[in-house]
Design a protein around this nucleic acid. Structure first.
Lengths: 222, 222
DNA sequence: GGATGTGAACGACTTCACAGCG
DNA sequence: CGCTGTGAAGTCGTTCACATCC
């Protein structure tokens, strides 16, 4: 996990959110959608905190950034909170996404329901392998990297999913940047460079497994 | 991303590592292996920090936890650092891993080279779908969940990869815990409960995309 | 000179505790 | 009374700066 400077000038009267808080808001959102399905109209900071594993005070601090949505003695309105969190995270709209590198991971992401549910739509596929170019997956055609700029402009994709081997990751991210992509979610196990103005989030699966091994090993030392 | 309490009693004369630091050590390790391939015998905190995007002071603080490996005026020995980091993270040995939920993501993980390179070996597959039970993938047979305890004991798997739908995630994790698994890497977009004594790391792909959207949106407010 | 290791300053995030409102 | 919103206190992690050593 890695990203660019989150600090920003105030500008308009916008919501000010810390990075850590934004991560938890995603978790609250996921859980709130569950509560909504179960018919809960109101939810307290204690319940929500319990459900995602943080303290009630933490929940209140995080939610306070969204404005005064809670009612003392009552709690927060489930529906209102969901809307407010989506707005704060910038997912109160559709995001179009381009996917580069059509391997197994890409196929998994293409069929991953979670993305669509949160308003992310994969609208374009790219791969350098001539054998894959022209194939169709989930109704989308695989294009050659050379067509990246044109296709991205045409489809209006703003985000990129990077599921290529480490060796070509930097090269591809450069191409995406040149094609005016605004943010990249990288799965290649490398540290990538992006210019200021483009956002980057990396998920390194081996790092996650290593973290797990580390935690397990820690416990072993009893 | 989520995990259990990392705090622990001193006990033996073991290395004391913060969670954040452990995450960066993984990144250093990845990069150091690159430097080694390129033939670098020595590396300075400045070079390493530059390569992974943190300050030189941060690198030194992190590496200081591993003991005094650096030579003033010279830097750190590449090879020695790699060994020390692997030991600190608990990956100076093989870990056997069981994978539950044989979907697209599982297939991607099975073929992911990064795991093997870091000493993780997937040794058992499980899926509840009768159509998948008995199939072979990458030389491994898919077993029914009922055989979990027996197969895990037999193969000596200590870690579990969870790539099942959210609905069944808690149920499966309970089965893994019952089968004496020590840690779980969860990909289902849910908050899971595990008893103390079992470690949990969760990777929620939708959360990562939401983080990206949040960062992009932040920049938009210029 | 060049780079490490580390106390001290700093900053960010979390928890506490309580006033205030429904 | 229950639960929110929030200043104040506390904790944790990062950056600075420099003495120290090759």
């Amino acid at each position: 996990m890695k990203a660019e400077d989150p600090a920003r000038e105030p500008g308009g009267g916008e919501v000010r959110l810390s990075r850590a808080s934004a991560g938890r808001l995603s978790l609250y959102l996921r859980r709130l959608e569950g509560f909504r399905r179960e018919g809960s109209k109101k939810i307290s900071s204690g319940q929500l905190g319990e459900a995602v594993g943080v303290t009630d005070a933490q929940v209140r601090k995080d939610l306070a950034h969204l404005g005064s949505l809670g009612q003392p003695g009552i709690g927060y309105p489930t529906e209102g909170l969901i809307a407010a969190i989506r707005r704060a995270l910038g997912i109160d709209r559709q995001w179009s996404v381009a996917l580069v590198g059509v391997g197994n991971l890409a196929r998994a992401l293409l069929r991953y329901r979670g993305f669509q549910e949160q308003g992310f739509r994969i609208v374009a596929l790219f791969d350098a392998d001539p054998a894959k170019i022209g194939q169709r997956l989930e109704g989308l055609e695989v294009y050659a990297p050379a067509r990246m700029a044109a296709v991205i402009a045409e489809t209006g994709a703003e985000l990129g999913l990077l599921t290529v081997p480490s060796e070509s990751a930097q090269e591809v991210v450069d191409a995406l940047v040149a094609a005016r992509i605004k943010g990249v979610l990288n799965f290649a196990p490398t540290v990538l460079r992006v210019p200021a103005g483009v956002s980057l989030v990396s998920v390194d699966l081996a790092v996650q497994l290593e973290q797990l091994a580390f935690l397990v090993q820690l416990r072993g030392s009893d």
